[in-house]
């Protein structure tokens, strides 16, 4: 029954592990202090080296800081923001969606109208408004991202729960005397986990992009601390003159997001009982 773990998936898992390891080990593997500036070494291309400061494998940024070190440290910030905010929204959103889809009636109306109210204001506006009021910080960022994005999970969980709840095996389980919690966790959750996981994995990438977008607007992870988004938004002024400032973090971001999404699709295919057999 278990699908063979293909070579491609092995590579992807390896890449994700590498990214995570790089983020985790940033302090030990970075060649330089990511915050150490040198105004005389601004915008040096990849491979530059000086006798006193050593080698800059990926070049330096507009304040003469080592780009490789900043990307490694930046991976940390981006990873943590994405994982935490996705977790917050996944848990909140799924619980509410399950409740709405299962209990229907007033519960559903209440939850889904709240979802509507939340969704009807674009997340980026809500985020900017909130960040503007509270002031940007790491915690604000995670909470704002997490608490503005949960309605997507709720809607998907709600729609999926409605569909699954109507299926005969649920009615059978109910007739067999199983209680709501058991049915929700044992029967419904596994059956709707597929779409939710897909949302979560694509949200993971979106969260990294979202942080980048807020950086572009000046409200993301605060300088001088690096995140991929803040490195890129600072580097876009030098898109041609110092291409390395956007291309390297961009490549990192692209690869990670693609890997996570492919993983998500693969996991979904594995978890989904209907497609697993094929």
């Amino acid at each position: 029954m278990r699908p063979r773990v293909s070579f491609g998936i092995r590579v992807i898992v390896l890449l994700i592990v590498l990214f995570a390891a790089a983020a985790l080990l940033a302090p030990w593997i970075s060649p330089h202090d990511p915050l150490r500036q040198s105004l005389l070494l601004r915008l040096k291309p990849p491979g530059s080296a000086t006798a006193s400061a050593g080698l800059f494998p990926l070049g330096t940024d507009d304040l003469g800081r080592d780009l490789l070190s900043r990307i490694l440290y930046g991976a940390r910030a981006s990873f943590i923001v994405a994982i935490l905010s996705v977790s917050v929204s996944l848990v909140v959103g799924t619980l509410l969606g399950l409740a709405a889809g299962w209990f229907r009636g007033w519960t559903a109306t209440l939850i889904m109208r709240f979802v509507d109210a939340m969704l009807s204001v674009p997340a980026i506006l809500l985020a900017v408004l909130t960040v503007a009021v509270i002031g940007p910080s790491f915690v604000t960022l995670v909470l704002v991202l997490g608490l503005t994005r949960w309605p997507r999970y709720t809607r998907v969980a709600y729609a999926a729960t409605l569909q699954v709840a109507g299926l005969p095996f649920i009615a059978a389980a109910e007739m067999a005397g199983a209680d709501s919690a058991r049915i929700l966790l044992r029967h419904i959750l596994p059956n709707i986990a597929g779409p939710l996981l897909v949302v979560a994995t694509s949200e993971f990438g979106l969260m990294i992009l979202f942080e980048a977008g807020l950086s572009f607007l000046g409200l993301g992870i605060q300088p001088p601390a690096p995140s991929w988004g803040s490195i890129m938004s600072a580097g876009r002024q030098y898109v041609e003159r110092a291409w390395w400032l956007t291309v390297f973090p961009g490549l990192g971001l692209f690869t990670l997001v693609v890997c996570v999404n492919v993983m998500g699709d693969w996991l979904r295919d594995r978890l989904d009982p209907r497609s697993a057999g094929r």
Binding site: V131, A132, G135, G218, L219, Q222, P223, P224
Partner: peptide
């Protein structure tokens, strides 16, 4: 410690 906020704040 650099504290970033939007212009009105």
């Amino acid at each position: 410690e650099i504290q970033m906020m939007d212009q009105p704040t």
